[in-house]
């Protein structure tokens, strides 16, 4: 793009790139390494970058002793429910937003931007009070409800982008051929919308899976805690030998979002999430 840089220019560029790779990569390598180190190597005076006797003991311990297994199941349950509900609720509205111009739609999208401004403290106290009133405080159902509402604005924005990419002519052609409104949606719109539905569901799943603040405040019973909350509690436990299982648990907690990002990689690198239906 900048033409042919000089040799020193190139060298400087590679030096800078190496710097970035070290800064971004080394903490990740350290997490991996800690997760596979046996206790003896964890407490060693001068730790090594690569474990000399790698073990999966930490993963076993994370699940048995710290009950991260239960927390992971809780997280899975809450995130799946959030993803399914978000899509079901967002689908009709995103269709309406994409196909008909209404003032309500503009207001809804404006709310997406505005709601970013407000710190969660303002929301959490009234939400906590509302949930307590209807008996949903300290339950997974309450948490799911909040996650759906929280993911909805972005999900709407994303899904209506996908709907917009389906040519209106296709729908009209099917209607001319005598298909009913419902048939048009079922046979034409939904199949073409499948990638968008998957992307929206994944987005909603991940934001629930990663969420920490609401889960920390709204769920008090330790048995109901989600994975991020369980991991954060785990951090408080002292002792260098504990770092192994902690790292192992953290690694597992990252897997779903890594899969999501691998899936979205192409859209991410092209800079727009509201990507095309193609592909």
């Amino acid at each position: 793009m900048f033409g042919k840089p000089s040799r020193t220019g190139r060298t400087l560029q590679y030096l800078a790139l190496t710097g970035y790779l070290v800064f971004l990569g080394f903490p990740l390598v350290w997490l991996l390494s800690t997760a596979f180190k046996p206790p003896r190597e964890l407490v060693q005076l001068h730790p090594t970058l690569i474990p000399s006797n790698p073990t999966v003991q930490n993963f076993v311990q994370a699940f048995t002793e710290q009950q991260l297994g239960r927390a992971a199941l809780n997280s899975l349950q809450v995130s799946l429910a959030s993803a399914v509900l978000t899509v079901l609720v967002a689908l009709p509205a995103s269709y309406a937003l994409a196909r008909f111009r209404t003032r309500l739609g503009t207001i809804a999208l404006g709310w997406v931007l505005l709601s970013q401004l407000f710190p969660f403290v303002l929301l959490i106290i009234p939400i906590f009070l509302i949930l307590r009133q209807v008996g949903l405080a300290n339950t997974h159902a309450g948490l799911v409800l909040i996650y759906v509402v929280w993911a909805l604005p972005f999900a709407l924005w994303m899904l209506q982008g996908f709907v917009r990419n389906i040519p209106r002519d296709l729908e009209e052609a099917a209607a001319v051929d005598g298909a009913s409104r419902l048939q048009v949606l079922r046979r034409v719109v939904f199949p073409l919308l499948a990638p968008g539905i998957v992307a929206t569901a994944l987005f909603s799943f991940i934001s629930a899976w990663n969420e920490f603040f609401f889960a920390l405040v709204l769920v008090k019973t330790p048995e109901l805690a989600t994975l991020p909350v369980a991991l954060a509690r785990f951090v408080g436990i002292e002792g260098t030998a504990r770092l192994g299982p902690l790292a192992a648990g953290s690694l597992l907690a990252t897997l779903p979002s890594l899969i999501f990002f691998a899936f979205m990689q192409r859209r991410l690198s092209s800079g727009s999430l509201a990507g095309a239906v193609k592909g």
């Binding site: 970035y20 971004l24 997490l31 800690t34 920490f212 991020p228 954060a232 951090v235 907690a253 991410l268």
Partner: peptide
Amino acid sequence: ARVLSVVPWAMPPVVVGILWKLVYHPDAGL
């Protein structure tokens, strides 16, 4: 570099915190 530059984004904030606690650890830190 492109892949690496996206990984931190994919991590839950709690995991990023734990990761760096390991890096900054006074005895066992990188």
